[in-house]
Design a protein around this nucleic acid. Structure first.
Lengths: 209, 209
DNA sequence: GTCTATACGACGATAGAC
DNA sequence: GTCTATCGTCGTATAGAC
């Protein structure tokens, strides 16, 4: 079933249509509260076809998560040991703000999954994500050890960057309501990135690049 | 029905038991994915009794939200115009980290509600919360105008404090998995508060109090 | 007030016609 | 591959015995 994704034309048009519809719907209410019927409706096909392409709901959800993780991993910005920390962290913050803007549904789907206990994501968190944090922490620690930045806990710094950037995607409703806006604009996103980069970098004893 | 809450004894023991059970369960999966049956099970009573005390699911959920908001408002730390900004913001950050620890379920219930579009919270966001942010922003702006701190957008500073502190409650699963811990300890919470206070205050050009 | 029993719709999933 | 029809289960909600 998975291999079909290679073929864009023909029999797999529905497969991709369903996957897109499922991402959209699962991101709204999470796994349990989302029905196969609304996914089928959004995809514009009978409910039975969804079961034909994806054996069951659980399976469809897993495919959706895998699809998101691929996009996520491809966008995860890499920082290097020999880089200037200000440049690297600034780029990391800006990349994540952009990702929250361009892939807000994916971010909310992840947030839903984690808030609800991450039952379908346990292994990914334990394996890939933990290792990713470990690698980046080591680099940040090396910057601290060489006196390039303040001694701050690298793991919590990563959490700070994650939480403050994701907030604008996951809590979009709250943010827009309080700002009294209907939707984000590209300028606002740049302003958010500027603000977060400025405060976090200075907070770590770094000068804006 | 609401007035009953005043009476702790007698007929209203079940009312409060159900409310507690509902807070717990709704915070796990959100409104739609939570069934009246699991709430009744957690409260240790027949499902029909839940419908007797709270007319329907919608009504029960509203009562739960109101209950949370009361606790929330009571804990919302006030900052004053004539205070030292470092002292005020430090206290605000520490209060919110503590709140995320002591009222993690309430935080997650709010997070769920907002991620899912805040259908039941619309008025609260528009009225009370927007006004709260406006008031605090004005105070922060006055600190900026008198040169006590760097010129940063006050609203985004509030968002930064909210997001970075809530993260430890809402994304508890992810945080604990990556830290390879089973649960939070009081020391960790203090460490988190120290870290966030240090970085955010310095990021705003303030010295730790 | 407390419980059992049940109505009735929505759910995931499948059988089987085309 | 695509659809309609339908199964069994679970959802919210209520009726009615005690």
């Amino acid at each position: 079933m998975r291999e079909n994704r290679e073929f864009i034309l023909g029999q797999t048009r529905q497969y991709l249509t369903i996957l897109d519809a499922a991402i959209e719907e699962f991101s709204r209410l999470g796994y349990k509260a989302t029905s196969m019927q609304v996914i089928a409706n959004r995809a514009g096909i009978p409910k039975a076809n969804v079961h034909y392409y994806f054996k069951n709901k659980e399976n469809l959800y897993r495919e959706v998560l895998n699809h998101i993780i691929e996009v996520w991993n491809a966008s995860f910005d890499e920082i290097q040991n020999d880089e200037d920390p200000a440049v690297a962290l600034d780029r990391m913050i800006r990349a994540k703000v952009r990702l929250s803007y361009t892939h807000a549904t994916a971010s909310r789907l992840f947030a839903n999954e984690i808030i609800h206990g991450a039952e379908h994501l346990g292994e990914y968190l334990k394996q890939d994500m933990r290792q990713w944090v470990r690698d980046k922490s080591r680099i940040i620690q090396s910057w601290i050890d060489t006196g390039k930045m303040d001694p701050v806990d690298p793991v919590h710094l990563i959490f700070l960057i994650w939480s403050s950037t994701q907030h604008y995607a996951d809590f979009e409703t709250q943010v827009l309501t309080i700002l009294n806006r209907a939707e984000y604009e590209s300028e606002m996103i740049d302003g958010i990135a500027d603000f977060l980069s400025q405060v976090i970098l200075k907070g770590c004893g770094l000068q804006a690049p």
